[in-house]
């Protein structure tokens, strides 16, 4: 039973979508075309399209810094983002399930505290965390950027809260049915809750990937050597306080930097499908 709109409605929807798309995408076109303009044209000319097309910003920008090209930076960002996705899925499902479905002492207190950690700006907690990671000898490795996501720190409280909300929305009869069938808590989690949470898991993956990909401040603080640089720390190298910034290169690499995320999203959004239980069970 899929609800398919009628042809006229379909046309109306498409027209609305296309107009909305143009408005939404327009600002990015400016950057896209600027990345093909020679440096002398970017700020002195008012036209959207370049007068002289050039690829120099793409070739020069890709050269990177200190002997490491953007190939290295993309690879590092990719490794980091994938690891954080794994960590976020791990911690948000376990913790989210516990908060949403299990009764235990201190539940509300712990949950409240988790929310509170999101209300302190990271600029403040950065220093004490840096001291801890420095003592651990983890500075200039990926560990300070990855390990927190496995133990529910940094961006992951958001995901845990998201999972809590999602799991609370799943029908409780499932739990009861499973318990009657002899499932223990772990089996309930693995066999029932996890498969039903697919849309939420996809959401967590997209966000964890993108937020790590886009994160600048902690990568800046913890990564020192150019062989560990990521795309966002690499992009930062095009800018200068004295105005001698390499704008064209910055735009070119910024455009390239969003491609992997777009591809990932294009791939994952297809899996936004209904969970098994929600399609049939209730009525």
């Amino acid at each position: 039973m899929k609800r398919r709109p009628k042809p006229i409605k379909l046309l109306v929807i498409h027209v609305i979508m296309i107009i909305l798309s143009i408005i939404i995408i327009y600002p990015i076109l400016w950057m896209l075309f600027a990345s093909f303009k020679p440096m002398t044209e970017i700020f002195s000319s008012a036209s959207l399209l370049p007068k002289h097309w050039t690829l120099e910003h793409y070739t020069a920008g890709w050269q990177g810094v200190g002997g490491y090209t953007f190939t290295t930076f993309f690879r590092n960002s990719l490794i980091l983002s994938v690891l954080v996705v794994i960590g976020s899925l791990f911690i948000s499902t376990l913790t989210g399930f516990a908060f949403a479905r299990l009764k235990f002492k201190l539940r509300s207190l712990l949950f409240m505290f988790m929310l509170m950690t999101m209300m302190l700006p990271m600029q403040i907690t950065l220093i004490p965390q840096y001291i801890i990671f420095h003592k651990l000898g983890w500075v200039n490795t990926f560990l300070p950027l990855v390990v927190p996501s496995f133990v529910g720190v940094s961006i992951t409280p958001f995901f845990i809260f998201l999972m809590v909300q999602f799991v609370r929305g799943l029908p409780k009869e499932l739990d009861e049915a499973a318990t009657i069938d002899g499932c223990n808590t772990l089996q309930l989690f693995l066999r029932i809750i996890l498969p039903l949470s697919k849309p939420a898991l996809i959401t967590v993956s997209i966000f964890a990937f993108y937020w790590t990909w886009d994160d600048f401040f902690s990568q800046l603080i913890y990564l020192n050597n150019p062989d560990k640089f990521t795309v966002s720390t690499g992009l930062n190298m095009f800018l200068d306080n004295s105005g001698n910034s390499q704008w064209g290169d910055l735009f070119a690499m910024s455009i390239l930097s969003i491609l992997p995320v777009i591809i990932l999203f294009l791939f994952l959004q297809k899996h936004f499908v209904k969970g098994i239980a929600t399609t049939g069970m209730k009525g």
Binding site: F90, L94, L102, K103, F104, I132, P148, G152, V153
Partner: peptide
């Protein structure tokens, strides 16, 4: 159930005790 819950919460509790609580209090 409480025991099971703390089992599920174990990794998160480590992060809470080692990283979050420390830097939160320090701030």
């Amino acid at each position: 159930q409480s025991l099971a819950a703390y089992g599920f919460l174990f990794p998160w509790l480590i992060g809470l005790l080692v990283l979050t609580l420390g830097s939160f209090m320090f701030s």
